[in-house]
Amino acid sequence: MRICVALSVMVALPAVAAPPPGASSCAGCHGGGGMPVLAGQPAEAIAGAMLAYKAGQGSPTVMDRIARGFTEAEIRAIAAWVAVSR
């Protein structure tokens, strides 16, 4: 009985993998309006670029300032998520 009550209140929503911290902000820029689209790119390449920017390599304009706000593990998680979502 208790199970039924619980089920009835928390109506099932499709379980989707929630974005890791930071990932959902990427859609503000990377969605096809001119800046690189991330969906469909290899996660390894996205993470590699972010890690390079974080380390001060390359010549991005803002992505270095943003990448410094994330740990390597967070960057890898974000890359894996944005590579497959839209």
């Binding site: 209140v9 928390m10 379980a15 929630a18 974005p19 911290p21 930071g22 902000s25 859609a27």
Partner: peptide
């Protein structure tokens, strides 16, 4: 908006929303 939508959906599923990071 994106973070809040995830949080609302989590709460409706009876889960606690995870601490976010925002840009």
């Amino acid at each position: 908006a994106r973070v809040c939508a995830e949080a609302v959906a989590a709460l409706l599923r009876g889960e606690a929303p995870a601490p976010p990071k925002l840009i």
